[in-house]
Amino acid sequence: MCVLAVLVSVSSGLWVLRARAAQPRREVEQGGLRLRVEQATWLHEPMDHGDAVQLPALQGAPGAGQRQLAVSLTLFNAAQGSGSFAARELVLTAENGQQWFPVEREEARLWVRPAQLFPLPLSFNVPASAGGLRLEWVRGEERAVLLSTRPPPSATSQAGGRERWPQSAEALPSGSPRAGAVLFHERFACVTCHGSPERPGEVRVAPSLHGFAKAGAARLPGMSAAQYAYESLLFPGAFIAPGCAGDAPCQAPSLMPVYGDALSSQEMADLISYLLGAGRGRP
């Protein structure tokens, strides 16, 4: 009887451990390395412009019928010695067992010194019909779930008879440049990467936005600066600007957040209005 009780106790303990391992944890440590999910955002396919404008097909961009999960992580070495990490250790697994690896999958390993911290932006392209998914970190015999999610419906699918975002920036409400400046400089701190659009030459990491009304209108044939700003905020990876700080190439895929998940229609209009007026003496 005692032996049976011990066996039941052990089996129950193993079941609890398995159940706990299957629960998503935002921060996980394995083999001395610590991974933390900072942000996870689903990106939709770019808007359909018909024959008017053809957006460039970027390497790694989701294809027709696919969705892209953009995940921002931080990697920290909590051990006393150096450790290695490879993007292929992260895998997106469906309920039926099908798996997808990061678009940026690299065979080379990243060596991390003790107390070293790395930003780790990764993305996964999966079918829109993939269903329930879990982001797993598989490291040797260890396996941990970092995130549980599922692909969203199309960006242009109707909900309650209305689209979340209209096709054209012209359909947005009238914007306030002053309110947009507050969003840019304070709430979303866009100035941290882009610098102030009102000061020529002040660019830090991302493309300069000084004189955006003119530069934005020249980005894609047939697209206004307002529309270019609108689609860049909704789909940062649809078009990569030709140059960033110091005329260095901009990183692809884009590290810019998808602001369609955070902005209201009025705030979107305010931000675009500010960008169009900045550097031209408008309030």
Rank of each mutant, 00 (worst) to 15 (best):
G50Q: 03
I272G: 00
R34P: 02
R134V: 13
A22Q: 09
A217I: 07
A225R: 04
E89H: 07
S148G: 11
F235M: 12
L120S: 01
P151Y: 03
G50S: 04
L263W: 02
V53A: 01
V6K: 07
V53I: 08
E89Y: 05
G32F: 06
L4D: 13
C244T: 01
M256K: 01
V8L: 15
L135T: 00
R150M: 09
V37H: 07
P177M: 05
G13V: 06
T149L: 03
G160Q: 04
H44D: 15
G195M: 05
L147M: 09
V6L: 15
V182I: 13
L234Q: 03
S232W: 08
G13P: 03
W15G: 08
E38Q: 13
F239Q: 12
E107T: 15
A213P: 08
V182L: 14
F212R: 07
P166N: 04
H44A: 15
S11M: 15
A19D: 11
S208L: 13
V203I: 12
A225E: 06
V138N: 11
H49E: 11
C250N: 03
H44Y: 13
S176L: 02
Q80V: 12
T41M: 14
A248F: 08
F118T: 02
G201L: 07
P152M: 07
L90S: 11
S174M: 13
L234K: 01
A179H: 12
R150Q: 14
Q251R: 10
S254E: 02
L43M: 11
R20N: 14
Y259I: 00
R143M: 10
C244N: 03
V191M: 10
V112R: 04
M256D: 00
G216H: 02
C193R: 00
M223P: 02
S12N: 12
R164C: 10
G97R: 00
R113I: 08
A225M: 08
S84N: 10
A155M: 10
W15I: 11
R139D: 09
G65R: 05
E163R: 15
F212K: 06
R67L: 01
L17F: 00
R187T: 15
G60W: 06
P221F: 12
A171N: 04
V8F: 15
P119T: 07
P102C: 04
H44F: 12
L73F: 08
E136V: 04
A87L: 12
P166F: 03
G279N: 01
S265K: 15
Q99Y: 09
R199L: 15
S72W: 14
L7K: 02
A130F: 02
Q23Y: 10
R18K: 12
A128Y: 02
R109G: 10
A61R: 01
A57P: 13
P102M: 03
A213F: 10
P253F: 01
E142D: 14
R280A: 12
A269C: 00
R199I: 15
L69H: 05
C193A: 03
L255D: 07
W137V: 00
G13D: 05
P56T: 05
P249S: 04
M223K: 07
D247C: 09
W165P: 00
A159E: 15
M223N: 05
Y230H: 04
R187G: 10
V138C: 09
P197M: 11
G81V: 10
A19W: 08
Q59H: 13
L183E: 05
N96K: 02
A94V: 04
Q227E: 13
A171E: 05
